[in-house]
Simulated assay, not measured.
Amino acid sequence: MDISGIPLRAVRAALFTAVVVTLSTASHVLLSQVPLPLNTVAAVAAAVFTLAYALAGRERGFGRIAALLIPLELAADTVFTTGQHLCYGPAGGPVAGPLRSVGWDVLCGNRHDVATPLARMTGTNADRLAPLLAHADPATAWLLLAAHIGVGLLAAAWLR
Rank of each mutant, 00 (worst) to 15 (best):
S101C: 00
L144M: 04
L30G: 03
A10H: 04
G57L: 03
P94Q: 00
Q33D: 15
L159G: 02
H135E: 10
A66E: 05
V102Q: 10
L145W: 14
T140K: 00
G97H: 09
I6E: 15
V11L: 15
L51E: 08
R64A: 07
Q84L: 04
A146L: 13
Q84C: 04
A139T: 11
T140Q: 06
G152R: 02
A43W: 08
A155L: 13
H148V: 00
A26K: 08
T22A: 12
S32R: 14
T78H: 08
P37R: 12
I65Y: 00
F62N: 07
A134Y: 09
L145E: 02
F80W: 08
T116Q: 15
L154M: 15
L107K: 01
I6P: 09
W142N: 11
D2R: 15
L153R: 02
G92Q: 11
A156T: 02
A157L: 14
N39P: 01
G103V: 02
H148D: 12
C87E: 03
A139I: 11
H135Q: 15
A10L: 07
G83P: 11
V106C: 00
A14C: 04
W104A: 10
L154W: 10
G150Y: 00
W158H: 05
A26Q: 14
A66Y: 05
V11M: 02
T116V: 06
A139K: 13
A147T: 14
A46H: 04
A156V: 06
V151C: 06
N39D: 03
H148I: 01
A47D: 10
T116W: 08
L23R: 13
A91W: 03
G5Y: 00
V48H: 08
E59F: 03
D127H: 13
V106K: 11
T25W: 00
T82K: 04
D77E: 04
T140G: 03
L153Y: 01
A26Y: 10
R60Q: 11
P98E: 05
T22N: 12
G83Y: 10
D127P: 08
R100K: 07
S27H: 00
A47L: 06
M121L: 14
G97K: 14
Y88C: 01
W158V: 13
A139M: 09
D77Y: 03
L31G: 12
A156H: 01
A18I: 04
V44C: 02
T50K: 03
L118N: 01
V34A: 02
L38W: 12
A18D: 10
L23F: 09
I3Y: 03
A147S: 12
L23S: 05
S4F: 01
V102W: 09
G5Q: 14
T22R: 12
G63A: 03
A147M: 07
S32L: 04
A75D: 01
L36H: 08
N125M: 03
G93R: 13
L38Y: 06
F62L: 09
I6F: 05
T78W: 10
A13K: 12
G103A: 02
V29R: 07
